[in-house]
Design a protein around this nucleic acid. Structure first.
Lengths: 251, 251
DNA sequence: CGTAAAATTGACTGACTTCAAATTCGGTGG
DNA sequence: CCACCGAATTTGAAGTCAGTCAATTTTACG
């Protein structure tokens, strides 16, 4: 696996999807001290309710935010990929409410809360950009609620694939129609609120329809339009089009 | 209906659940200019993806954030009550992703984006408190995803009642075990991802178990412990215990 | 190359939905 | 205060989508 020279470039890219950063702000962010930590699959990035003295940026690999039920069942509430900022609620504000664990091996940049705090104090515009990022996370979260709440099994799978496709595309990780999907069917089940068996059947059905091919862990969407239709996918919630540029009179 | 002298007191109370505000910050917030707008049931507070020049604070009544599916089905992604801040993402950052409509009659304080912007620029600590509030909303949203994704119909209803109970309590609207629930069963269905018919049956079952009594639109929880157990309810995600006090070096 | 994990498939079960009809509630005008 | 009407609730019966259980095959990885 070719490891890029570790940097927070991917976080900058993500923030710039919705917030315009000045050169100063970008440089300050890139100058943040961090420790790169290699991570095995199943490694816990954050656990339970504990607060933490750091947050992290995922540099490589995939992770999931999850909640456990008393009976041991599990629901993923987000899939995290390169550039995603994880655990800011723990480092700046309070303890968290979800666990975060690696789905694959990868690496994360660990950023000390105090360092982040200092940069945000010096650059209020950055704080604004991160708040904006929090709001985008919220939009994704709401769509996940809709997905598991109101869509059929087939649509849920289709919708998840659409969302992950767009997010890969936005982060420059892969093309929307062809990307790596390193999740097991059990993990996909935890994303969609289905059982692993049913995930298998729905993937098979999408394949039979000729809409999505899945070899090993590579997804190839051969008919995006039809997939989006099956999913009821509207990409508006992922897109910042029409956003008001960050304007903070104190910045 | 006795209308309290309209003020943003309820918003202050909400923020103080998790953020410590200085007297200055509190006064600045309370001094925000706003227009009180009475609202009929079904009134749209925000619609579709449009950005807005304002946000609002719910002063009275109940509202729901919802998303519509292409086929007309609907999922609520949050229930909003007195003190809840609505539409900040539209006023400060970008267009929204969900519609917001009143479930009952009520009233909202409409705050112009420019006024809010000015107060936040003057009091960075307030921006921090609102960001924190955004993160709490995220925690609630994640729990909703878990609720519709992994819990049985009975548990979903039970969990919703627990959450609404605690939130009524926190906002000083009512006691945790006895509060007004002005939602129709159809609306409860849109909260839980069930059908109205099934909501009816689950409420009946909770009643038969002697856990929750529901007369007209008043909820009386006679056995909180058992209800929480049925729901798998853990109140941690609603509670700021152990939070790190807001500390912003620029404030 | 061998072993454990993951994927696949089939048969059966059950929770929730759908459809439809009857009853109750809540507000309004007489 | 009561009669009325639409909305909301309640109930029953039948259907279906997804879950459960269990066995087999394939894949991933040391």
């Amino acid at each position: 696996m070719p490891v890029a020279k570790p940097s927070l470039e991917s976080l900058v890219r993500k923030l710039q999807l919705h917030s315009s950063l000045t050169a100063d702000q970008r440089d300050a962010l890139l100058a943040l001290p961090f420790v790169q930590r290699p991570l095995e699959a199943r490694a816990q990035l954050f656990r339970g309710l504990d607060p933490a003295g750091h947050c992290c940026v995922l540099l490589d690999g995939y992770a999931a935010r999850s909640k456990l039920l008393p009976d041991g069942r599990r629901q993923f509430v987000d899939v995290l990929m390169r550039g995603d900022l994880i655990g800011i609620e723990r480092s700046l504000f309070r303890r968290g409410d979800t666990g975060v664990e690696m789905l694959t091996r990868g690496a994360a940049a660990m950023v000390a809360a105090a360092d982040l705090e200092a940069v945000l104090a010096a650059h209020p515009g950055l704080a604004r950009a991160l708040w904006s990022e929090t709001l985008f996370q919220g939009a994704i979260q709401r769509e996940w609620t809709v997905n598991v709440g109101r869509r059929s099994g087939l649509s849920r799978m289709a919708h998840l694939l659409c969302e992950l496709g767009v997010r890969h595309d936005q982060q420059g990780i892969a093309h929307r129609e062809k990307f790596n999907l390193p999740l097991t069917q059990e993990q996909l089940a935890d994303c969609t609120g289905l059982t692993p068996v049913h995930v298998n059947r729905m993937l098979r059905l999408l394949d039979d329809y000729g809409v999505v091919l899945r070899n090993h862990r590579q997804v190839t969407i051969s008919d995006w339009t039809r997939l989006a239709k099956l999913a009821g996918f509207e990409d508006g919630y992922l897109k910042p089009e029409g956003f008001t540029a960050v304007s903070c009179q104190a910045c």
